[in-house]
């Protein structure tokens, strides 16, 4: 096992400052990837929207604007609590951080609940991804976004537990900040999805 411990120590030799800036840059790169992953859907949206404007006008009224707006507010609020959580841990306030992350998680769950009601209402009205191009876009864009909400929630869950265990301090809190970046991306994407899908004039 002497070998294993040698291996284990491996990778921990990085200067903390380098590790911090590397992790942040790494997450930004990953967010770039995510933007281009959604990019295919945005491109499809642009093309079909330009091709079939009437379809988009007629069918978007089926979407529940109020639920969409509520979810927008929830996500923006969760972004606020996440950002405050990062600042809190940078000041070493572990308890405040834990509470703020917990609120963020609850917001994310709330978002999921609203989305669940939205989806079930659609299915109830026999609207499925193959109903039309517009609803294909609706389900795929919000579905892929929902997947990211779940991944974000998993990350936040881990951060919450680790914060409670006191793993993060004013000196070491890279995972909180980097995890926070990911959560903000979820918000960023939704900022575009909401008007594009729910608010077509």
């Amino acid at each position: 096992m002497g070998d294993a411990s040698l291996e284990h120590s491996h990778g921990h030799h990085m200067d903390p400052a380098v590790e911090y800036s590397s992790s942040k840059l790494g997450m930004w790169l990953f967010l770039g990837t995510e933007i281009l992953l959604f990019g295919g859907l945005f491109a499809a949206y642009a093309i079909f929207r330009a091709k079939y404007p009437e379809m988009f006008f007629e069918q978007h009224v089926e979407l529940n604007k109020k639920m969409g707006a509520v979810n927008t507010c929830i996500l923006i609020f969760s972004s606020l609590t996440m950002a405050m959580g990062v600042s809190a841990i940078q000041r070493g306030k572990q308890k405040a951080t834990a509470i703020l992350i917990l609120i963020t998680i609850l917001c994310g769950l709330g978002f999921g609940v609203v989305k669940y009601f939205e989806y079930s209402a659609k299915f109830h009205h026999h609207i499925y991804p193959d109903t039309s191009i517009f609803f294909s876009l609706y389900f795929l864009m919000t579905g892929l976004h929902m997947l990211h909400v779940f991944i974000g929630l998993a990350i936040l869950g881990v951060l919450f537990v680790l914060t409670l265990k006191g793993k993060f301090t004013a000196k070491y809190n890279t995972p909180v900040e980097v995890g926070g970046l990911y959560w903000h991306l979820v918000d960023l994407i939704w900022i575009y999805l909401f008007p594009l899908l729910y608010l077509i004039g």
Partner: peptide
């Protein structure tokens, strides 16, 4: 960080722009 935050956006614009030009 700025470069890698903005460059993907320009690629997205390129993808959308040229695909629309074609279509």
């Amino acid at each position: 960080t700025w470069v890698f935050a903005l460059f993907p956006l320009s690629l997205l614009a390129l993808l959308i722009g040229m695909t629309i030009t074609d279509t």
